[in-house]
Design a protein around this nucleic acid. Structure first.
Lengths: 131, 131
DNA sequence: CCGTATCCGATCAGATACTG
DNA sequence: CAGTATCTGATCGGATACGG
């Protein structure tokens, strides 16, 4: 893949990777664990209520509230408030949120595929270092 | 996409999303910002020395050291020590690290493509809330 | 049901100083 | 050059209590 930076003879002379700075920015915004998990959940189920997400993820009320507000602000999640009694609030992905699904799912799938490998590598490393 | 969990009539009745718990685990390990940026850098340049990474990412010495050790332990990065004077240490992706390249690059590309959109959504949100 | 407010411990992450 | 050690502030994140 190509993230768009300049490759060439000055490859290692650049003071800083410009893309990394920008990627860093975005990761700071939507790259935290809870955001990714909320995105994954919504991409799986389509629409979820506040407490459904809470139960699904095992996230605290506080973190879910903060995460959802942030995702809504960033335009990744749409919030629908139904002023019934008791109130009902539904969350779903926006267009941009949906476009985020693919890369996030790629991470998720890789995660599921490599958890065991990581555990083994870690075990091996610890034995080697411990000797 | 399908992360492998059971879909069906009990979709919303499951107490917790089992995949989310496992994905959460992996994200806890290799999902932090510095790890992702190191992976991206190494996938771009192939092999980098400690200070090259440091300059590229604008990361502090401490965090880079911790991040690299963690990635090496998890089997994603390979470390080669050349006992010269001055010493020279090179880092590159392992096979598993390379397999992580694709999903991580997908995140990176999406990030570069959507930074501006996020900024606009945020601006719009702030105006709406502020009124 | 859907949050917000507060408190508090745990972890993150930079700055600085030091070693082989 | 390639780290480690220590200190310190910032942020994360759970628990609890409360309100619309």
């Amino acid at each position: 893949m190509n993230l768009g930076h300049t490759k060439g003879t000055d490859m290692l002379e650049s003071k800083e990777c410009p893309d990394c700075k920008r990627i860093n920015e975005v990761l700071t915004r939507v790259g935290d664990r809870w955001s990714l998990l909320v995105i994954i959940s919504l991409s799986e189920y389509g629409t979820l209520r506040f407490n459904e997400l809470k139960r699904n993820l095992g996230i605290s009320q506080r973190m879910l509230s903060l995460t959802l507000k942030k995702l809504e602000r960033d335009g990744l999640v749409h919030r629908t408030y139904h002023p019934t009694i008791p109130p009902k609030v539904e969350y779903k992905l926006t267009q941009m949120g949906k476009s985020f699904r693919e890369p996030v799912s790629a991470i998720g799938s890789w995660a599921l595929d490599n958890l065991i490998k990581i555990d083994k590598a870690r075990e091996k490393y610890d034995v080697t270092v411990g000797s």
